[in-house]
């Protein structure tokens, strides 16, 4: 009984410490978040951390504390362990709790956060979104803005660049083909459109059109934070590591200014 009590005290103490750690650092799980979608993910993660911490502490304590407590001393002559071969209470609690926790996790945060994301991606929610056509080829990202007539956004050096206004939903329309060789269908491969700061990625599949929606919440750029970059996340050949593009999230007025610059430059 004393053993059980000591274990219980240790479990509570370490769980509380763990929860304090979750409160302190849990919201930095993604390190840098710059979109509502990333915040959805972080909130779901924090919820998972809250529940997983006591479970983790429980099992780790079991793996550390019990073997040490039950350790056989070298002067001990008894070779047989005591303990039962079955304990209905222990098994019932274990099975019920693991089932309950998993069902809970499925309902919240899995389904709830997923429904939230689906809602943000629904056609109704993206009616007024900024549409960015993203084309992935080996190994380059092209961005065009059909609502503004920008066919291929380029920066002053002629590199592909993504400019986004802050706090406005952006609907990325993702396709994989080579705009320079549109007849060579067999050349396309799977890419994955990922902006680490936005907390989501979507694969770009040849022959299919995929949608990704993100609402940037912070004014930042690749220069100020390197997590704010477009990175191909799915291996797509030897050029895969070089398949990135710079991202600028700017204020609305700065975005309008950039649009007119791009149009003037004939992009």
């Amino acid at each position: 009984m004393a053993e059980l009590l000591t274990f219980g005290v240790l479990w509570v103490v370490f769980s509380v410490l763990g929860e304090l750690g979750v409160s302190a650092w849990g919201h930095d799980f993604y390190f840098y978040t710059a979109s509502t979608q990333a915040l959805d993910g972080v909130n779901a993660s924090v919820f998972l951390f809250r529940f997983l911490t006591p479970i983790f502490v429980f099992v780790v304590l079991m793996l550390l504390y019990i073997p040490i407590r039950a350790r056989r001393r070298s002067n001990e002559s008894v070779l047989r362990g005591k303990g039962a071969r079955f304990n209905a209470t222990y098994v019932t609690i274990w099975v019920t709790l693991s089932l309950a926790v998993n069902l809970l996790f499925f309902v919240h945060p899995t389904t709830s956060a997923a429904e939230q994301l689906f809602q943000e991606m629904s056609p109704q929610a993206t009616q007024n979104a900024l549409v960015v056509d993203v084309v992935a080829r080996q190994w380059e990202w092209y961005f065009s803005y059909p609502q503004y007539g920008i066919k291929n956004a380029l920066n002053a050096n002629g590199n592909n660049v993504l400019y986004l206004p802050v706090n406005r939903p952006v609907k990325f329309v993702l396709r994989s083909y080579d705009p320079n060789h549109p007849y060579a269908l067999g050349e396309d491969v799977i890419h994955s459109f990922w902006i680490p700061a936005f907390g989501e990625k979507m694969d770009v599949i040849p022959g299919e059109t995929r949608i990704m929606v993100a609402t940037p919440t912070k004014i930042a750029s690749t220069e100020t934070n390197p997590e704010m970059r477009v990175q191909c996340a799915e291996v797509c050949g030897p050029g895969h590591p070089y398949m990135y593009a710079t991202v600028h999230v700017v204020s609305n007025s700065a975005f309008q200014q950039w649009v007119s610059q791009q149009l003037k430059a004939g992009n």
């Binding site: 099992v59 073997p67 039950a70 350790r71 056989r72 362990g81 303990g83 304990n87």
Partner: peptide
């Protein structure tokens, strides 16, 4: 569950 239950109150050889 099985492993932890087995070690519990045993004479565990580390």
């Amino acid at each position: 569950m099985v492993v932890i239950g087995t070690i519990w109150r045993s004479r565990f050889r580390l």
